[in-house]
């Protein structure tokens, strides 16, 4: 659990509704991130999710292992360059993610720094920035392509199906919870108390809805003759964008090993 220390708005009666407002904002932002998946984006989408996944994992491991600031710095610069070429919305998201990771990391490491016990841990905020940029670029991958990439890595069908279904359900249930929360906000009218009880009602309703929908989905699968196989692998091309991506990763890896 993490708690945000932002003070709630101090508008008298509305004060007690802060948690509803905050929940609403969280739900909206999550839904919009998933919706942004259905975009027609730029060059980044031409890089196959398989290469993206492998390269990102490899780089994240290297960053974690690295004790060399300039390797980390190189990773940051190359990724910043990639970020700079993204569409504005994607760019903002990756940067926000990176900034949050960096800030949080600085806060966490600051005490050790003052105790003089930091050592290489003082690199952690910078490493966090690098990893967040890598992860941010990876998070732009379309989720359905990501599951195909996992299939290529021989992940079991069961897992892929669960992941695909989770993300779909997330949209359906997310929209449902959003509406329920909005209804709650309108009915509460900034009233006091009962926060947990009303949230429990919303949560409970969401669960019942999810249960009902999962039963229906199961029936729909049965109807279409579900026999356990899921999705075949797509073709794995190797275009210019892929080559560029792999080369950039290889270059960074070379820096890691040769400096």
């Amino acid at each position: 659990m993490k708690s945000s220390k932002k003070p709630s708005p101090s508008r008298g009666g509305l004060k007690n509704d802060a948690f509803v407002d905050k929940s609403l904002i969280t739900f909206i932002s999550v839904l919009s991130i998933i919706r942004a998946q259905d975009r027609q984006d730029s060059w980044i989408d031409r890089v196959n999710a398989f290469y993206k996944l492998c390269c990102s994992l490899f780089l994240i491991v290297l960053v974690a292992l690295s004790r060399s600031p300039y390797f980390v710095f190189a990773v940051i610069s190359v990724h910043l360059l990639a970020v700079a070429l993204l569409k504005t919305a994607s760019m903002k998201r990756v940067l926000a993610l990176a900034a949050t990771a960096f800030g949080f990391s600085c806060l966490m490491i600051a005490p050790a720094f003052f105790m003089g016990k930091a050592g290489f841990a003082s690199l952690i905020p910078v490493k966090a920035l690098a990893s967040a940029l890598i992860a941010g670029m990876l998070s732009l991958v379309k989720f359905q392509e990501l599951t195909s990439a996992l299939k290529r890595l021989h992940a079991p069908d069961f897992l892929l199906m669960v992941l695909d279904l989770s993300i779909r359900s997330l949209v359906m249930l997310g929209e449902f919870s959003l509406e329920t929360l909005q209804a709650l906000k309108m009915r509460r009218l900034g009233g006091r108390g009962g926060g947990y009880r009303s949230l429990a009602g919303v949560g409970g309703t969401v669960f019942l809805k999810s249960k009902e929908m999962s039963e229906e989905m199961h029936q729909a699968m049965v109807c279409r003759g579900f026999a356990g196989t899921y999705r075949p692998m797509g073709k794995l091309g190797f275009g210019l964008a892929n080559a560029g991506w792999v080369l950039a990763t290889a270059g960074l890896a070379a820096l890691f090993f040769f400096t």
């Binding site: 989720f143 359905q144 599951t147 695909d164 279904l165 779909r168 359906m172 929908m213 229906e216 989905m217 729909a220 699968m221 999705r231």
Partner: peptide
Amino acid sequence: EAQLFCAD
């Protein structure tokens, strides 16, 4: 909604 469970 419940019937559409694939990625695309």
